[in-house]
Nucleic acid binder design. Structure first.
Length: 517
DNA sequence: CGCATTTGACCGGCGC
DNA sequence: GCGCCGGTCAAATGCG
C-alpha cells in the first residue's frame, strides 16, 4: 500500500537522474556567462578588443539560445517520460494484479487438500497478503514420482518445522509493501477474469504437497483442464506456459560441485549436453515432498571454475533460513521475468543458450550481471555473479562482460550486500583489490530475509519504473519489456545486494546449514 | 540396511 | 517421418 505512493518516487528520481545533470549544467552555464563577459569587458580597452568581445558575445548569445532550446527539449522529454511511466506503470500494476489473483485463486482451491506445510503458507498469505508465484511447474510430473516421494519424505518433516519462514517469490515483495493496492486488487482481480480459472493458473501443483491424487480434483479450477490445449483461453495458456518455463540462472565462481544455496537437493540425473563437455546435473528439491523446484548445475565450458546453476519452479514449502535468501532472489527475478515477457521475441537469439553469450557484450545495453533470454518459450534470466556490477548511473557505459570475467573482481556492493541495501551504496567497484567470489563466502553473516524482501521489493519497483520509462520515445513494445526488465535488474543495486546477501548468507553458513549437494 | 548417487534407457519436443 | 537433443526415470551401484 505504501508502495503505491512510494513506487513513483524512485522512478521519477531515476528518470530525472538522466536529465538533471544536463539541465543543471545548462543552468550553471547560462548563469556563469554574464560573469565571464563582465570580467572580460573590463580588461579590454582597445577597439580591436571590443570587436572581438562583441563577436564573442554574439557567439555566446547564439550558444545560449541553443542551450535554451536544448533545455526545452529536455523538459519536454522529461514530461513525456513521466507520462509514459505513468501509463506503463498502470499496465504493470495490472500484471501484478493478474499474478496476485492467480495466487489467491490457487490458494483458495488448494487449501483443503494440502498437507502440513501448505496451510502454513496459506496462513502466511492471509496474514501478509503474500502472492505465491509458481514457476516452472511440471504438469504431468505428479503421478510419476514415487521414488522422489519416498526419498524426500524423511526430510520433509523437518522442513515443515522450520517455522516463521516466508513463502517465496513475489510474496516477499508483496508482503514488504509491494502490494500497491493489493487489498483492493484481491477483490477486484477475482472478478477481472471470472470463470477462466484465473488468468494465471500458476500451477495448481506447486503449492500443494498432495499433488498426486488430489491434483485433478482439488487443484484445478472446475472445468479447467490442466494441460489440455483444448481448454480454450489461448492467451491464458500462453501466459501459463511462460510461467511454467521461467528460469533463473546464476553464474558464480565456485569450486564445489554445486552452489550451496541452503536447500536440500537430490540428484536425479546427469547429462552431457551439446556444446559443453561438462556434464549437466539435475537436482530436485527434497526439502518437502512434491516440491516442484528443480535446478540444473553445469560448469561453464569456457571457464570451468564458473558454476552455472539454473533454478526452475517455486518451492511449495517453507524453507530453511539459509535457503530463503537465494530462493527469494531467484524467485523475484523469475517473477519479473514472467510478468514482463509474456511476448517472447527478438532478443532471444542473443542468448541462444542462456549462459554463454552475455547480453552486456552482445546488446551493449545491459549491465554485466544480468541477461534475459526469451528463447524458445523458455525465458531465462541469468544473474552473472562473476563479473563486476556497473554502477547504476553508468549503465550506458557498461563494460564488456569479458573484462570483469577475466579480472575476477567482485563489486564491493556485493560484499557489502546488507549495507548497500539501505540505499547507501558506498562503492560499486573493487578495482583496487580484485577478489575472487570465494571471499564473499566466508562472511558468516546471519540471515536477514526481511532485508532481502525489501531489496526485492525495491528491485521490483525499479523494474516497474523502467517499464514505464521506455527509451526516450514511443511506448515500449512488448518485446522490449524484457529488455527493460533486464536493465532494471542490472541497474538496481538493491537487487544486486539481495543477490550478494543471498550468496553470502548461504555460503557463510552453508557449511553447517546445508548438508545438501 | 537404508539412502544417495550413478548411469543407461526412455520419452517428448522440435527441427529438418 | 525421422533423428537429435534435453530432460527424466529407475535399476544398479556405492557409501555410511
Amino acid at each position: 500500500m505504501e508502495v503505491a505512493v512510494e513506487r513513483p518516487t524512485p522512478v521519477k528520481e531515476e528518470k530525472r537522474a538522466d536529465a538533471k545533470p544536463e539541465m543543471a549544467a545548462i543552468g550553471s552555464a547560462t548563469s556563469a556567462l554574464p560573469i565571464v563577459f563582465e570580467s572580460f569587458a573590463s580588461t579590454q580597452s582597445d577597439a580591436a578588443g571590443i570587436k572581438q568581445e562583441e563577436r564573442t558575445l554574439e557567439a555566446a548569445k547564439a550558444e545560449m539560445g541553443e542551450v535554451r532550446e536544448e533545455n526545452e527539449r529536455l523538459k519536454t522529454m522529461l514530461s513525456r517520460i513521466v507520462s509514459q511511466y505513468q501509463s506503463l506503470h498502470t499496465h504493470f500494476l495490472d500484471v501484478v494484479k493478474v499474478h496476485e489473483q492467480a495466487a489467491s485463486y490457487k490458494a483458495a482451491n488448494k487449501l483443503p487438500a494440502t498437507p502440513a506445510p501448505a496451510p502454513a503458507a496459506a496462513a502466511a498469505e492471509d496474514a501478509d497478503d503474500l502472492v505465491s508465484l509458481s514457476l516452472g511447474t511440471r504438469p504431468n510430473g505428479g503421478p510419476r514420482r514415487k521414488g522422489h516421494e519416498r526419498s524426500s519424505s524423511s526430510s520433509g518433516g523437518t522442513a515443515a518445522d522450520e517455522g516463521h519462514q516466508l513463502s517465496l517469490g513475489l510474496g516477499i515483495a508483496r508482503g514488504g509493501g509491494m502490494a500497491a493496492s493489493a487489498d483492493d486488487d484481491k477483490a477486484s482481480g477475482a472478478s477481472a477474469a471470472p470463470g477462466t480459472g484465473g488468468v494465471l493458473n500458476l500451477s495448481s501443483d506447486s503449492s500443494s504437497g498432495a499433488d498426486d491424487a488430489a491434483k485433478p480434483a482439488a487443484a484445478s479450477p472446475p472445468g479447467t483442464a490442466r494441460k489440455s490445449p483444448s481448454a480454450g483461453e489461448g492467451a491464458d495458456d500462453e501466459v501459463q506456459q511462460q510461467a511454467k518455463k521461467a528460469r533463473v540462472s546464476v553464474r558464480v565462481k565456485c569450486d564445489t560441485p554445486t552452489m550451496p544455496d541452503g536447500c536440500q537437493w537430490r540428484k536425479y540425473g546427469q547429462k552431457i549436453s551439446k556444446g559443453n563437455p561438462c556434464p549437466r546435473a539435475y537436482y530436485r528439491c527434497t526439502v518437502a515432498p512434491q516440491c516442484p523446484v528443480r535446478k540444473q548445475v553445469q560448469r561453464c565450458a569456457e571457464d570451468t571454475t564458473i558454476l552455472i546453476t539454473t533454478y526452475e519452479g517455486q518451492h511449495n514449502h517453507q524453507l530453511p533460513p539459509a535457503a530463503t535468501a537465494m530462493a527469494s532472489t531467484t524467485s523475484a527475478a523469475a517473477a519479473m521475468l514472467t510478468s514482463g515477457s509474456t511476448t517472447s521475441s527478438s532478443s532471444a537469439s542473443l542468448a541462444a543458450h542462456g549462459h554463454h553469450l552475455p547480453f552486456a557484450a552482445a546488446a551493449g545495453m545491459f549491465g554485466p550481471t544480468t541477461m534475459v533470454s526469451t528463447a524458445a518459450s523458455c525465458p531465462t534470466i541469468t544473474l552473472d555473479l562473476t563479473a563486476p556490477a556497473a554502477p547504476p548511473h553508468s549503465l550506458m557505459h557498461s563494460s564488456p562482460y569479458a573484462a570483469g570475467y577475466e579480472s575476477k573482481a567482485v563489486p564491493a556492493a556485493w560484499s557489502n550486500g546488507y549495507m548497500a541495501y539501505g540505499g547507501a551504496h558506498p562503492s560499486y567497484y573493487a578495482k583496487s583489490s580484485p577478489a575472487p567470489l570465494g571471499h564473499l563466502f566466508g562472511g558468516g553473516v546471519s540471515s536477514r530475509p526481511e532485508q532481502l524482501y525489501a531489496a526485492a521489493q525495491s528491485y521490483l519497483q525499479r523494474a516497474s519504473s523502467l517499464c514505464g520509462g521506455g527509451h526516450g520515445g514511443a511506448v515500449a513494445p512488448p518485446a522490449a519489456v524484457t529488455d527493460t526488465l533486464a536493465k532494471a535488474i542490472t541497474s538496481d543495486p538493491s537487487f544486486q545486494s539481495a543477490l550478494a546477501a543471498a550468496i553470502t548468507t548461504v555460503m557463510g553458513r552453508g557449511g553447517a546449514a546445508a548438508a545438501q549437494k
